[in-house]
Computed example of a mutant assay.
Amino acid sequence: MREIKAFIREKRSNEVIEALRDAGFNSLTVSEAEGTGKYTKKDDMPSFRFPVTHSKMSKLEIVCKKEDVEAIVKTIHEHGGTGERGDGLVYVSEVSKIYKVRTGKESREDI
């Protein structure tokens, strides 16, 4: 199993989510994120909640089968990218175990 975390521009998140769902990847978590990357442009403003950040992003999290990673990353790239600096980043990590909250037991289910 793998976990994919993608930080993408807020304005591209709906298109990415729709493309992932169309490709059969329905289970994902979406949240607001703010960052302090190297990317800055003239009209960037500091966050009102976090004074050191300037880039509003969407964070997508997906746990998937190892063989689905490339398709998911490709979909995020194709629908999330604008070709300009600051489009975001994608991280892929290994998931060693999954536990059910309801039972507290390790899940053997395939996603």
Rank of each mutant, 00 (worst) to 15 (best):
S107W: 15
D68W: 09
D110I: 14
S96N: 01
H79A: 04
M45L: 03
F50C: 00
E67K: 14
V95Q: 05
L89W: 04
D44S: 15
Y99I: 01
S31N: 04
D43P: 08
R12C: 06
S107V: 14
T75A: 03
H54P: 01
G24I: 06
K100E: 07
G83N: 07
D87Q: 10
N26P: 00
T53Q: 03
P51Q: 10
E32W: 14
V101G: 03
I4V: 08
S47D: 06
D22A: 04
P46W: 12
Y91P: 05
K5L: 05
Y91W: 09
A33K: 11
D87A: 07
E106M: 12
S93C: 05
V95I: 11
V73T: 06
D87L: 02
G88A: 12
T75S: 05
V30N: 02
D110G: 11
E78T: 07
S107M: 14
A23I: 12
R12K: 10
R102H: 06
H77W: 02
E78N: 14
V16Y: 08
V30Y: 02
F7D: 15
G81C: 04
L28R: 02
V52F: 08
S13V: 12
S27G: 10
V63T: 08
M45I: 01
A19M: 04
T36R: 08
I98W: 07
